[in-house]
Design a protein around this nucleic acid. Structure first.
Length: 599
RNA sequence: CGGGCUAUGGCGCAGCUUGGUAGCGCGCCUGACUGGGGGUCAGGAGGUCGUGGGUUCGAAUCCCGCUAGCCCGACCA
């Protein structure tokens, strides 16, 4: 295959597009791989499509290798399956909805769990049919509130999604392990560094979930790792819980006037001024901050949750959302947001800025008159016997020396605090550092959630109906192209790994003599005959500088230059990544390039 | 949804403060020169200045509304 630049549908840009922020987006547009069609929606040009196809081919091969069978669903779907699992509602504004001429509701699929489940239900009904691994490589549509960074977060994107169907948990474990291995092979072949990190299964249920994160500063996901090898998504990190302390001998609590101290900073300042401590200055870590949140239940109800945590820590709403399910057993997804003024008005016992547990009871009650209908959860660091400065439920007053378990109680503990650099890893492997990454893939054990909701059952060996257990496994294919561009570029342009480059060799002619073009034509034809994919810059009136610039921008791994060296019988062969160049005798150049490509 | 910014030819921008009928660079077309790092010269094509209204003799420019986009945050299998 030879792509001639004289006719290739391509226009490279000298300047960065103004709406692009990250390198991959700028370069993919500048080098003529993609064009923006609408916010978060991109058109693939010939070069981009070639890269995309190569990524897809690798994914396909590895999925087939573990017994995956490719299918293809429509992107345009009726709403009914999504109503059965409640996602027609749960997805909210996140999905593109439309109506047909009769007024029936349709959607552009944001994900296909329902359709896969129904397809298996449609065709299979015996344990003998299982396990089954089905996958597709297909467009997904999500009406993201804020698409960003080009291909990295689009509103239309391509995902490889697969689903495993098994009769029992052991089968699911096997399917999960196979997918995990396949994913590691896929990313290795793509030349994309990924870390499998522990993720929360969250409201999806299921016992196990890992994300494959590609570490990069422009990533949208924060994860933590320790020198000892612990890696986890921040939502999944667990706190190292201190030992309980025997409260015997601790002095009783004491209420003090602390005027104008509605924030932790002002409180710490006042505490050191009004009640200095012999053993050292009070710090924010000595205070117990009570943050009021509102949980949005699937029923539409709004339930208040107060979280007590050390004052030097901040609540991470994502972590709350991921872990709240255990404390509010309502089933379904629970949304979490900061409480509104209206929420506080409905609970006058909660005095803003001075909220604390009801004093002197071990029960989990809050506020001046004691709470009703509020769930009080605390950070795991708040163990029995710890002593705190916290709000006294009266404007301008705080209580000092309030001892957990002795003077106040709580409904439960929750992992909810923002993980900080330097916090200990839960497995004792050292202090955590935070890093950013792009989620390239996510695998999880769905269990029976969808099968139950859609009534997917098969007959087992005993002739009994059993609900099938499922796994779900995704790879962001278009996102992989963006991540590859992001991690493989320099200040001159893209530098594709060999396995995904749009071509094997970028052959160019510099000069105008007919012999140069004739020789380059010969080389191009021979390379084609040997199965090498060639981008051939045969443009007759383009200066050498432009050709070099375009070659480096486009980023094919090997660049061959037929030019002034030809008089000495050599062709220059450059390595795009290292920049090293070598003069190869004309007679050997085809063989040289073939082995470089297959190398 | 909150905060900030922007909207002028295919792309990147100036012009707006102080109203007078649109300009620059890149790209594109023609020709000549040049020919290993985005070269030079000459001549061209291409714009209802996001949109609706208002002020004015006259609006890209001033005023009001709307829409869209970008960035940060919230949100997001």
């Amino acid at each position: 295959m030879v792509l001639r630049l004289s006719t290739l549908f391509l226009r490279t840009l000298r300047e960065d597009p103004v709406d692009a922020e990250v390198a991959s987006h700028k370069l993919l547009v500048r080098a003529g791989y993609i064009r923006r069609a609408a916010p978060g929606i991109y058109t693939w040009l010939p070069l981009g499509l070639r890269v995309l196809n190569k990524v897809e081919a690798i994914v396909r091969e590895e999925m087939n290798a573990i017994g995956g069978q490719e299918v293809h669903f429509p992107a345009l779907l009726p709403k009914e399956p999504y109503e059965a699992t409640n996602r027609w509602t749960e997805y909210g504004e996140g999905i593109f909805r439309l109506k047909d001429r009769k007024g029936a509701d349709y959607l552009l699929a944001p994900t296909h769990e329902e359709m896969f489940t129904l397809l298996v239900k449609d065709l299979y009904n015996s344990y003998k049919d299982l396990p089954a691994y089905l996958y597709q490589i297909q467009n997904k549509y999500r009406d993201e509130a804020r698409p960003r960074a080009g291909l990295l977060r689009g509103r239309e994107f391509i995902m490889k999604d697969s689903y495993s169907f098994d009769v029992d948990d052991a089968g699911l474990d096997t399917a999960y392990a196979k997918h995990r291995e396949a994913y590691l092979r896929i990313f290795a072949r793509l030349g994309l560094e990924v870390l499998p990190v522990l993720a929360t299964a969250g409201a999806m249920g299921g016992s196990r979930s890992e994300e494959f994160l590609h570490p990069t500063d422009i990533g949208e996901d924060t994860f933590v790792r320790s020198a000892g090898g612990y890696v986890a998504n921040v939502e999944a990190v667990t706190t190292v819980v201190p030992e309980d302390i025997d409260p015997a001998g601790l002095p009783p609590f004491e209420v003090r006037d602390t005027p104008d101290t509605p924030t932790i900073d002002t409180l710490v300042e006042a505490a050191n001024r009004l009640a200095p401590r012999a053993s050292g200055a009070w710090t924010a870590a000595d205070t117990l901050k009570n943050v009021v949140l509102a949980a949005l239940l699937p029923t539409g109800e709004r339930h208040l949750v107060v979280i007590g945590l050390p004052g030097d820590r901040a609540v991470d709403l994502k972590r709350v959302e991921a872990n709240i399910g255990a404390h509010l057993p309502v089933g379904g997804e629970i949304g979490i947001e900061a409480a509104s003024e209206e929420d506080l008005r409905r609970h006058p016992g909660l005095v803003k800025g001075y909220i604390g547990p009801a004093l002197g009871t071990e029960r989990a009650v809050l506020g001046a008159e004691g709470s009703t209908g509020i769930t009080y959860l605390v950070d795991p660091r708040v163990v029995s016997g710890t002593s705190w400065i916290t709000g006294a439920n009266e404007h301008g007053k705080h209580v000092f020396g309030l001892v957990a378990g002795r003077d106040f109680g709580w409904d439960g503990t929750i992992e909810c605090v923002e993980v900080r650099e330097g916090d200990p890893a839960p497995d004792g492997s050292g202090p955590l550092e935070t890093a950013r990454g792009i989620e390239m893939g996510h695998i999880f054990q769905l269990g029976r959630k969808y099968a139950a909701a859609l009534d997917l059952k098969v007959l087992d060996q005993n002739g009994k109906l059993v609900t099938v257990t499922m796994g779900s496994y995704g790879i962001g294919v278009t996102r992989a192209v963006a991540a590859l561009a992001e991690s493989n570029h320099d200040d001159r342009g893209l530098v594709w790994p060999r396995n995904v480059a749009p071509a094997d060799v970028h052959l160019m002619v510099t000069g105008k003599q007919a012999e140069l073009f004739a020789e380059a034509e010969r080389i191009a034809a021979e390379l084609e005959a040997r199965g090498v994919e060639v981008i051939f810059d045969d443009r007759p009136k383009v200066s050498a500088g432009v050709k070099f610039g375009d070659a480096e921008l486009i980023g094919v791994p090997t660049i061959a230059v037929v030019g002034r060296g030809l008089a000495d019988g050599v062709v220059e062969v450059k390595d795009r990544a290292s920049g090293t160049a070598e003069n190869v005798p004309v007679a050997d150049v085809v063989e040289y390039l073939v082995s470089a490509v297959r190398g």
